[in-house]
Design a protein around this nucleic acid. Structure first.
Lengths: 143, 143
DNA sequence: CCCACTTGTTTAGCTGGCTAATTATTTTTA
DNA sequence: TAAAAATAATTAGCCAGCTAAACAAGTGGG
């Protein structure tokens, strides 16, 4: 039973792909003045205007600190507005501005569609379905 | 022809898996006082003592700046030593210390093996081979 | 009613990663 | 051979992500 070298493991492939995928996402987002990670945050707010930072933290698998600071930058750049919750003065609620709404809708075509097309290029329909199924298992394993 | 929601694309799965995978790698590396990214750099030097920063940059798909700074931190923590190249005074060559060599050998068991086992858990041998093949195509698509 | 605990957010300080611009050292070339 | 171009590394400054610790506002129990 020979050990396979690290460079031929699924883990190594995932770490390489993760990096390449994120790099490409950043390239596609740069024309919108966004960075990878910010688009997911905006997406969440789009689906639920007035969502609290705490809810964003839970939904994004990211630390509360990261949410606070990313929200701060997105507000500075005019994508959203913060507002203290009137019921619970601890909580902060966030709302997309028009610029924010428009950004989310553009990201869909300018990033996700392009990225998906490039990612699954040269794979048949069956292979794509299969890959999706296998990746869902992997995600479940790592969560 | 319905559009599938972003959350069901291969791209979305990859970004989620990439994050989870990196998080888990960081957990496993923390006992060695290393962070994800550093282990790849040490690995490269292990395979070629005296490698230059420029060669490291090429081999790791990372910017030269990142290599410079990561090397600086790894030197500060005693994992490696820098030395100006005698032939080409522009270049800097790096060598693992004993601590560095030992770290690379430990990372193999403490991180890669554990991570791989967890990642491909619940997949048959055939599924693992298939997944590897599909991921190699994806990596090639994104490179 | 007040003190202790929990919860939501923020600050400080660290890491990986990036681009643009700078410095130093070859290498080319006019 | 001297000036121009290419190459190797570094500095400054930005962004995502993290932990630990602080702070502020609700919630409960004695």
């Amino acid at each position: 039973m020979n050990k396979i070298p690290v460079s031929e493991t699924v883990s190594y492939l995932i770490s390489r792909i993760g990096k390449a995928h994120r790099n490409r996402a950043n390239e596609l987002l740069s024309s919108l003045n966004l960075h990878a990670g910010q688009e997911l945050l905006l997406q969440q707010i789009y689906q639920q205007q007035g969502i609290t930072l705490n809810e964003l933290t839970c939904g994004m698998c990211v630390s509360a600190v990261t949410v606070t600071r990313t929200v701060e930058r997105l507000e500075k750049n005019g994508f959203l507005k913060k507002e203290r919750c009137s019921f619970d003065q601890r909580a902060v609620r966030v709302y997309l501005t028009e610029k924010g709404v428009s950004a989310v809708e553009t990201v869909e075509q300018k990033m996700w569609e392009v990225l998906e097309r490039e990612t699954v290029d040269n794979l048949s329909t069956e292979e794509r379905m299969l890959l999706k199924r296998l990746l869902m298992q992997v995600l479940s394993n790592l969560s």
